[in-house]
Amino acid sequence: MKIVVCVKQVPDSAAAIVVEDGKVNWGDAPIVINPWDEYAVEAALQLTEKYGGDVVALSMGGDKAKEALKHALAMGCSEAILINDPELAEMDASGAAKVLAAGIQKVGDVEMAIFGKQAIDNDTGVTPAMTARVLGWPMISLISAVENIADGSIKAKRFMEEGNQIFESKLPAVASIVKDYSDPRYPSFMGIRKASRAEIPNLTAGDLGISKPENKVKWFGVDNPPVRDITNEKIEGETPEEIAANLVSKIMEEKVL
């Protein structure tokens, strides 16, 4: 079974991000693999360990995106591919989905394309479902456990707001993975060494046989969120009861209950 896992590089979630001169700036915070994508890589590896096959990590972006791919390789993916073409820069989610779909088709004979739930930079969370739609494959989102894969079909559990849905779906399919699936493994020493030596091929739009998809979403710019106008007030008292009485009276005055 061949699985493609799509990964993205993002600034670390602990980064203090500010907008300066109309651009998002994360200072010297490290660029890491999107935390959600680590679950996707882990799921892909576990599935091929159980059912056989290979995991190909796929990313799109400039040279920085190689870091995310190297992390995926160090975790155990057998191959990494970077779609790296200046012509494909600054794409919206629908454009990214069209390019990733072309990348997945280029890999060929893929039974599952697995994504993280969303990327923590743009927070759209729509690329997996868009990619599924472009490919014409079923979208099986927010998977927390896979029970079985056999005869071109997957039986798994997926998250919904109201509970979990146990379902069976035909493959190939696009899946997204949630945190409950399993903690992602740490890259092994051998894995890190292998990843650092790996040559990651760059694919261009031409290699994929596509031209740049037209952006549908126009950005007018980014800004810092409005400063919260807060007056800090410490609530004190001699006893917990006194503190509670003072605090509750203040909250009641806010008329939020």
């Binding site: 919206d92 479902a129 868009m130 739609r133 998250f159 707001e161 952006n215 549908k216």
Partner: peptide, 23 residues
């Protein structure tokens, strides 16, 4: 912006050759 809402908005964007503004 529920899980279904997000997913279906994404699919409709591809179906109608449009884009989606999320959340």
């Amino acid at each position: 912006t529920t899980t279904r809402g997000r997913e279906l908005a994404a699919m409709l964007a591809i179906d109608t050759d449009s884009g989606v503004l999320v959340d």
